[in-house]
Simulated assay, not measured.
Amino acid sequence: MSRPQDPHRPSFPFGNPFRMIMPKGSYLSPKLTELLNSFEESLAQRLRMLMPADREEILSLLWMKRAVESLSAIHTDIKTLITGLELPVSDWDEKWIDVYLDNSVKLLDICIAFSSELSRLSQGHLFLQCALHNLDCASSKQFVRACSSLDGWRQHIGSKNPRMENCFSILDNLIKTLNLPKIKNSSKGKVLMRAMYGVKVVTVFVCNVFAAAFSGSAEKLLDLQVEEIRLWAEAFAGLQGFVNGEIRSIYSSGKATVLKELEAVDANVKKLYPIVQEGVGEEAEAYKNSVSDLGKRAEKLSQGLDLLAKEVDGFFQIVLSGRDALLCNLRVGTNVTDQLQEKKNVEVR
Rank of each mutant, 00 (worst) to 15 (best):
F18K: 07
F18M: 10
F18V: 06
F18D: 08
I21W: 03
I21Y: 02
P23E: 07
G25V: 10
Y27A: 08
L28D: 01
L28R: 00
L28Y: 08
S29I: 12
P30I: 01
P30W: 05
L32F: 00
L32D: 02
L32H: 00
T33W: 04
E34M: 07
L35V: 11
L36N: 01
S38V: 04
F39T: 00
F39Q: 03
E40G: 09
E40K: 08
E40P: 12
E41A: 12
E41F: 11
S42T: 14
Q45D: 15
Q45P: 04
R46P: 00
R46F: 02
M49Y: 09
P52G: 13
P52M: 12
A53E: 13
A53C: 03
A53T: 12
D54W: 10
D54H: 13
E56N: 14
E57K: 09
E57R: 12
I58T: 15
I58H: 06
S60P: 07
L61A: 10
W63F: 04
M64A: 15
K65C: 04
E69I: 01
L71P: 05
L71K: 02
S72V: 06
A73P: 00
I74Y: 03
H75A: 01
H75V: 05
T76A: 06
I78K: 05
T80L: 15
I82S: 05
T83M: 12
T83G: 14
T83N: 10
G84S: 06
L85K: 03
E86C: 09
E86P: 05
L87I: 03
V89K: 02
W92M: 11
D93L: 14
E94D: 11
E94H: 09
